[in-house]
Simulated scan of single mutants.
Amino acid sequence: MAPTQVELKLLSHTKARKVLFAEAGKDFVDFLCSLLILPVGTVIRLLSKSTSSSFGTLYKSIENLSQTYMQPNLDKDILLKPQSSYPVSGAPFLLTGVESASKKFYICSYNHGYIAETDQAICPSCDRKMSNEVRYVPPTRSNASSSSSGEGYVKGAVTYMVMDDLTVKPMSTISSITMFHKFNIKDIGDLEEKIINLGIAEGLKLLREALQSKDVLTNVFLDKNSVGKI
């Protein structure tokens, strides 16, 4: 089962009040990867309470639009609750409202070779509703990657460095030293290491910040009361 909370370690500069980078495992990087395949409609729905963009007003107007004005073979949920086109099992389930079920498709009772994403579609051959549900089967994993370690997007047993702007790279001593030079770190006492537990609330905030900022980790985590110095 995909985790609903993941842990990462932040290294921040106390005087600059900025996160330099996070030391993260597979779970957090898998979560970041999952953001890349979220449909726009899902992103808007997740952030509808915290966004004033025109996309938000467009979403609400379609949500409030009577089904009478929609094409008879169209279910509004295709627009309002779209599913990812390539769901991957094992990725952290940190965003409420994201459909986790397998993608569904429909055919007519005579199976004329057409497939639809809604049970309201009409078969072009027989003019009957395509209401017989069939399920999408994702590509079969090889035996070598069929274990839980083969789930998600990136490989486990690797520590990743995630920058404040969400740049992801493998963690190494050289990359850490490079970061210290980049930010002109001269006094190691100015650095603070913190353990963060990322849950649903933080996941939503991270998604919002990722759409409008390059100081994502700083804005989401730096001043959290739950953070403790180690």
Rank of each mutant, 00 (worst) to 15 (best):
T4I: 12
T4A: 10
Q5R: 14
E7V: 15
L8E: 02
L11Y: 09
H13I: 04
K15F: 09
K15D: 12
A16E: 15
V19N: 04
A22Y: 02
A22H: 01
E23H: 07
E23C: 08
A24C: 10
G25V: 00
K26M: 03
K26V: 05
F28R: 02
V29C: 06
L32E: 05
L32V: 08
V40C: 09
T42A: 12
T42W: 01
S52M: 09
S54E: 15
Q67G: 12
T68I: 12
P72C: 03
P72F: 01
N73G: 09
D75L: 05
D77N: 14
K81R: 13
S85N: 13
P87L: 02
G90R: 03
G97C: 02
S100Y: 07
S102G: 08
S102T: 14
S102A: 13
F105Q: 10
I107M: 14
S109N: 12
N111D: 15
N111L: 05
G113L: 05
Y114C: 05
Y114T: 07
D119V: 00
D119W: 02
Q120V: 05
Q120L: 14
Q120C: 11
C123P: 04
P124K: 01
C126W: 05
R128T: 13
S131D: 14
V134A: 06
Y136L: 04
P138D: 02
S142Q: 07
S142G: 10
N143M: 08
A144I: 10
S145L: 10
S146F: 09
E151W: 06
G152Y: 00
Y153A: 03
V154D: 03
T159A: 07
Y160D: 07
M161P: 03
D164F: 00
D164M: 02
D165E: 09
M171Q: 05
T173D: 10
S175T: 14
S175L: 11
S176D: 06
S176K: 10
I177S: 09
T178Y: 09
T178M: 08
K182F: 08
N184M: 09
D187N: 14
I188F: 13
G189W: 01
L191I: 10
E193H: 12
K194A: 13
I196G: 04
L198Y: 06
G199Y: 07
L204K: 14
E209P: 01
A210G: 04
L217K: 00
V220Y: 02
L222A: 02
D223C: 04
V227W: 06
V227T: 12
I230V: 13
I230C: 12
